[in-house]
Design a protein around this nucleic acid. Structure first.
Lengths: 335, 335
DNA sequence: TTGTATGCGTTATCAA
DNA sequence: TTGATAACGCATACAA
């Protein structure tokens, strides 16, 4: 095995306790002794064993972060930012990916609990229906937890979410204000909270203008199905503006429209949601809803740390705002 | 604190040793006793403390995975796939992100070593020049390591890499065979191994056809700078085919060309590299080099496990192949 | 088949 | 200012 404080103690003819104290910079140890201990530790290649330390201190210094998946920029950013910020606060972060499966998520949570993480930040899979046994387990689990990005309404725990309802509402309002009257919202599937909230914001915005749009469900939130759906839609069903529940589907809509020989925004407008990397690579700059991820990650970690300090963490919702760009630039109505 | 085997032992009037053995399914314990112990453990909410276990067993069951960043699909996939596969083999994976900084990478490596991971899979940042002290440290570090995806040639360790040189060579050959003669390769910066290999493959492929193309360095591998570079290039410098060191830059080139009123592939061809998500969202289907990520992740973990078993792991290179799609479809030369 | 004793590497409590 | 000793929770060699 590796070098331990005992080895250093023997080498220097002092006691292990002295070495431990010196290494931790205790003021009870003489300067000269401290210097000698540190020098020997360096020379002998000593690295502290955090497992032994955790055992006696009763805390691990590890936080858990569970995300639904990792391949979309949203989650990648979440993981990267939270890890870094947590490290600056002296915590390690153990990441677990749920592969969009509720069962895997539960398994991940169990694993983290077993590994004695001090707190868990959960960005839930969020599909319906949910396993009631899991919801109960979550509620009764005694590791401090905060929801990150979205949440299970069944479980009473602090949460930091993005105001996606408000973002979609804002966007819809801005677009109706431009005089558009015929809308289609391209969504994935029903029964996912975060999707349903977008739909709700969409409907609310239209209702304010005395309108009622359509929602097309493509089955998933990917590119392919959105592309096909728009490509195959009868000409007369096409709206003035396609709104989409993420930028990726917006890209699909734009490309499908181009394939049909329709111009964006002159013939049909397109709007996305996220303002992430896909908005950046859009052929014409994309109207979308900006999500403030850095505010989100900051608030998540803050809530987690508050809970760890035994303070109360209040639910927070990060506002989201529509950003109008060229893909919906006003033009004479045609449809 | 939480429930320990001592608590269970006291509850049942047996010794802690018995409980430990029963919980680990030892055949030396009577069936009835085992049953009672397991029942009590369940009832009392016992969870084993992996820190204590690691301390006595001398192994942690944790592997480290260090990646340069996390926001590109390549790394996200790497992390997700390797974590899952490793878990199936009974290992935890501790992920660290280097933020594209050599110094952060070193810090990450130190942290993992300190945390007593049993092995480290390193997907290096790979910029030039490199800190020689770091290279030496890597070489002398005594935790088993394998390079994942790319490597430092200065360090002698097993590696599993993608044959990006060969992929680029293959692609270039196929495109010259189509009769194209004027090429530009859009790259990021010089001095990054993985970039330089692409350039080398490009040049080698052209040389075989008696050609010599140009390389345009945009400074980084992002969308914006590639877009601007193509947009602002004098008309007469435009090639028959833009090759790009990743799909993202290819997308940028396509959009910039469209902005200039040029059609792809009729006026100018465009090819990417990766065959990842950005190839999928391309307005016209993108010629690119396919990287076999699942073969890669499988081989990485296998190499890691071999090293952990004390076996020798041989360097492996996963072949990459060009895929011709519409964005370079042969057309009468014009330039 | 079960219990006792010991040690893993560290920190904490007391004495010296 | 330092040293001896006892924990932390678990696994195991050995004794019963």
């Amino acid at each position: 095995m590796s070098v331990t404080i005992k080895d250093i103690a023997r080498e220097l003819g002092v006691s292990p306790a002295t070495v431990s104290l010196a290494l931790n910079g205790s003021s009870m140890i003489g300067q000269e002794t401290t210097r000698r201990v540190k020098e020997a530790a360096e020379r002998m290649g000593y690295v502290r064993n955090p497992y032994a330390r955790s055992l006696v201190k009763g805390r691990t210094g590890v936080l858990g972060l569970v995300v639904a998946e990792l391949r979309t920029p949203f989650y990648a950013t979440l993981v990267q930012d939270i890890s870094r910020a947590a490290q600056e606060k002296g915590y390690e972060v153990s990441v677990a990916v749920s592969d969009d499966q509720g069962a895997t998520e539960w398994a991940n949570m169990r694993r983290l609990v077993q590994h004695r993480v001090e707190g868990i930040m959960l960005s839930p899979v969020n599909t319906m229906p949910r396993d009631p046994a899991y919801m109960r387990w979550l509620q009764e689990m005694d590791v401090p937890m905060v929801f990150a990005g979205s949440r299970y309404v069944e479980v009473d725990a602090p949460f930091v979410t993005l105001d996606i309802y408000g973002g979609m509402l804002d966007l819809t309002r801005r677009l109706t204000a431009q005089g558009n009257r015929k809308f289609v919202l391209l969504s994935g599937a029903e029964g996912v909270d975060t999707m349903d909230q977008r739909v709700a914001g969409f409907r609310a915005g239209l209702a304010e203008a005395g309108l009622a749009g359509q929602v097309w469900y493509t089955g998933d939130t990917g590119y392919e199905s959105a592309y096909r759906r728009v490509l195959e839609a009868p000409r007369e069903e096409l709206p003035q503006v396609f709104m989409c529940i993420n930028d990726l589907m917006a890209l699909a809509a734009m490309n499908a429209l181009a394939r049909r020989g329709l111009r964006v925004p002159e013939d049909v407008g397109v709007a996305g949601f996220d303002d992430g990397v896909f908005a950046q690579v859009s052929p014409v700059s994309l109207t979308t809803v900006h999500l403030d991820l850095s505010a989100l990650t900051g608030a998540i970690l803050e809530a987690m740390l508050r809970r760890l300090n035994g303070e109360r963490a209040y639910p927070a919702t990060i506002p989201s705002q529509a950003i109008l760009r060229r893909s919906t630039e006003k033009t004479e109505s045609k449809n």
